[in-house]
Design a protein around this nucleic acid. Structure first.
Lengths: 190, 190
DNA sequence: ACCTTAAAGCAACATCATTGCGTTCCGCCC
DNA sequence: GGGCGGAACGCAATGATGTTGCTTTAAGGT
């Protein structure tokens, strides 16, 4: 649901949506979240506040929308020629991005203004898609690979849990450890 | 940080805090979250809105505060005489409570109004404490038990991840599966 | 019992959220 | 290609919420 279902996808609506999203990114970068308010975003985007309220409902939903867009992976995971190397590299990068202060903020925002959970589902789908790509490549090479669900449970979930629920810093070594566990696990799954 | 650090713990401050918390619970039960607003809570609690704004900052922090209180376990996990049975029973109950609509709401609230992450950390600490109790009992009996961190990573984290990021319903069988995995894991950890 | 001071009350003010109505412009069909 | 229907936007007024300085109360220490 990143871009809300637009009955009128082209032209002005699209321009407004882009302008508003850009305004959010700019204001966030310039003044931080505290100064982010619907009227402020509207002014920067050259739109009236009522437009934003009508399209997004409130600030949280708008931020959630923007956050999900930022969390969308921009390219498929890099190919290192072997499952273990691919997964390790991906997990490290994922942890790095998500555990960073901006990453944490995006995740929180995505979860926040999301009454039906569709934005959060989208985030999970992004990660699952990346993992899926890595595993499919491994199978293509003739390697044995665990199911996606196993990797989600053993690698992605622990990282996200710690990011959300624990203040402690996280290291690449932790990501490596989780990958080891996942690849050592029996091949069946939930 | 459930009860904010009160320089004046006794007497009126305590009464006000309790009244406000009670007002939140009542209004939430009576009218749902949509109608929950700071002035409304203040009116029900018999306080002025400014008191709430000063003590909690905004509605989200107040809700986070109340949510954490509700997530505090009320009793130690039940003792079934064996590690496997104890963990399975606890995991099922935990999943049941957290995956329910009110449970999801509390978790989200707790994460939400929590700039420094201390409330979220408290939630995690509650779960870790319960697990710790179960594992300590097992060791007392002479059973071998994995470290707390392993159980957090292999049982708690996957459940919370799915609760937060996926709309799909979760079953007791899933909790059982996670416990199996955790108890089958090698004894070392992160 | 007094003094100190954190915390609550009060009230005015600023800002934000909401809504009805008129206008614009997209997308479609003739 | 020109007009038609309707969705989305702009504008402006209104009500609700968030914010702040000053005053008053009462808890806790001396």
């Amino acid at each position: 649901m990143s871009p809300k279902p637009m009955a009128r996808p082209g032209g002005r609506s699209a321009r407004v949506q882009e302008a508003v999203h850009a305004a959010v990114r700019e204001l966030e970068a310039e003044q931080g979240r505290a100064k982010l308010t619907v009227p402020a975003v509207a002014a920067r985007a050259g739109v009236t506040p009522s437009t934003i309220y009508r399209r997004w409902g409130d600030l949280q939903e708008l931020l959630s929308d923007v956050a999900v867009e930022r969390l969308r992976p921009e390219e498929p995971p890099s190919d290192h020629g072997a499952l273990h190397a691919d997964l390790t590299a991906w997990a490290r990068q994922f942890l790095d991005e998500m555990a960073s202060p901006p990453g944490r903020a995006y995740v929180r925002d995505a979860l926040l203004g999301d009454p039906d959970g569709s934005n959060a589902g989208q985030c999970s789908a992004y990660a699952a898609g990346q993992v899926e790509t890595i595993l499919a490549r491994a199978l293509d090479r003739g390697e044995t690979a665990p199911p996606v669900e196993t990797v989600m449970d053993l690698v992605v979930a622990p990282m996200m849990y710690r990011i959300l629920f624990r203040p402690d810093p996280l290291t690449a070594a932790y990501a490596d450890h989780l990958v080891e566990t996942a690849l050592a696990a029996p091949e069946e799954s939930a």
